[in-house]
């Protein structure tokens, strides 16, 4: 057994039993499905496993990969589509951070989150909690291509976490996710003065559905968020009655 520390230990999140959001959130943020949740195992989802790679060349921008990733980490929520919210720490993205996500995907409102698993000067990676629409890891990175152009890249290695999400991903969810990340890359390119033309490559890593994971549906963040939204007026009424 070896015990020496690797050179990049500080780039990784420390082990945690459950997730906790350590920063303040705005009043309108819906904080469900993150606090106290465990990180979802990367191979424990239900659906087919996909590797999706989104890329954009920053032609004409004289910018190093390190600078691209620095900006990406510092302004991450600003590159998202309108109506999709990432509530992370104010400063930047660092290993071990837990951020809240409020999104609308495939017509369904969802409150969920991510753990920043890894971050260095040319990349950072997120993992999802149990109940998120997919289990897996998303890595955001930049590198210099052989022709000297810097390229920004998002690689998602994911599988739908339960049968409902799998159905959603087969119909509208996957397209919504693709639009989101392609939008992020276009926005990132625009930040550097480039009209980006992002591309998408999809590879099915594992075609088998894991039927023994059917029960993941009981942790579904979408179901919990829908239930929360539907019962909100009742809670307001109760609150008003109690304070009267």
């Amino acid at each position: 057994m070896t015990t020496q520390e690797p050179t990049n230990a500080e780039n990784w999140a420390k082990p945690v039993d459950s997730l906790h959001i350590a920063h303040d959130l705005p009043d309108h943020a819906i904080n469900l499905n993150v606090e106290g949740k465990r990180v979802a195992s990367m191979t424990s989802g239900f659906g087919k496993m996909w590797q999706k790679t989104y890329r954009v060349r920053l032609d004409g921008a004289r910018v190093a990969p390190q600078q691209v990733v620095k900006v990406w980490k510092e302004h991450f929520p600003e590159f998202w589509q309108k109506g999709q919210h990432f509530f992370g720490p104010m400063a930047s993205i660092s290993p071990g951070d837990v951020a809240l996500i409020n999104v609308k995907t495939g017509g369904v409102k969802l409150s969920t989150g991510i753990l920043v698993l890894y971050a260095d000067d040319v990349s950072f990676s997120f993992m999802t909690p149990e109940g998120h629409m997919f289990t897996g890891m998303i890595t955001f990175s930049a590198r210099e291509l052989e022709d000297g152009v810097t390229q920004a890249e998002i690689v998602a290695l994911v599988r739908a976490q339960d049968p409902i999400y799998e159905l959603g991903m087969m119909t509208m969810g996957s397209g919504a996710e693709d639009r989101q990340w392609l939008h992020v890359l276009r926005s990132l390119a625009a930040h550097f003065g480039v009209e980006g033309k992002p591309t998408l490559e999809k590879i099915c890593v594992d075609r088998k559905r894991q039927w023994k994971r059917f029960g993941n549906v009981r942790r579904s963040a979408a179901i919990r968020t829908v239930f929360y939204s539907v019962t909100r007026p009742l809670r307001r009424k109760e609150k008003t009655r109690a304070s009267a």
Partner: peptide, 8 residues
């Protein structure tokens, strides 16, 4: 050394 791409 393993980074997050390596884990993927």
């Amino acid at each position: 050394y393993i980074n997050s791409t390596g884990i993927a």
